[in-house]
């Protein structure tokens, strides 16, 4: 597919912009983290669109954000596990 550009994104309705970004980010994340790709992509989509576009163009910045997201996700899950089982 052709690369996603800022102008393409701006032309899309707001509701579609995150979806477009997610469709591009997901395969890149899935290649490295097949089990967590859906959750990681969901987390990253909360970031600004301009930053997400930059991440699509720069694998290094994507990977550093993915690593950050995994750390946050694991901390979040660890917190859940500490809750008493009632």
């Amino acid at each position: 597919p052709e690369p996603l550009t800022a102008s393409m994104l701006a032309a899309a309705p707001l509701m579609d912009q995150k979806q477009l970004l997610g469709e591009r980010l997901y395969p890149m994340i899935h290649a490295h983290h097949p089990n967590l790709a859906g959750k990681i992509t969901g987390m990253l989509l909360e970031i600004d669109n301009s930053e997400l576009l930059h991440m699509l163009e720069s694998p290094e910045s994507l990977h550093s954000k993915v690593d950050e997201a995994i750390a946050v996700l694991q901390a979040h899950q660890a917190k859940e596990c500490q809750q008493p089982l009632v």
């Binding site: 707001l14 509701m15 995150k18 979806q19 997610g22 469709e23 980010l25 997901y26 395969p27 790709a37 859906g38 959750k39 992509t41 969901g42 987390m43 989509l45 909360e46 996700l73 979040h76 917190k79 859940e80 809750q83």
Partner: peptide
């Protein structure tokens, strides 16, 4: 809010409208 949200993060599945969209303010 201080509570944990077990439904977070909204998972993205290709081809499926992302559920997190409804939480984003224009």
């Amino acid at each position: 809010a201080n509570g944990t949200n077990i439904n977070w993060p909204p998972e993205f599945c290709p081809g499926v409208p992302w559920k997190g969209l409804q939480n984003i303010d224009p």
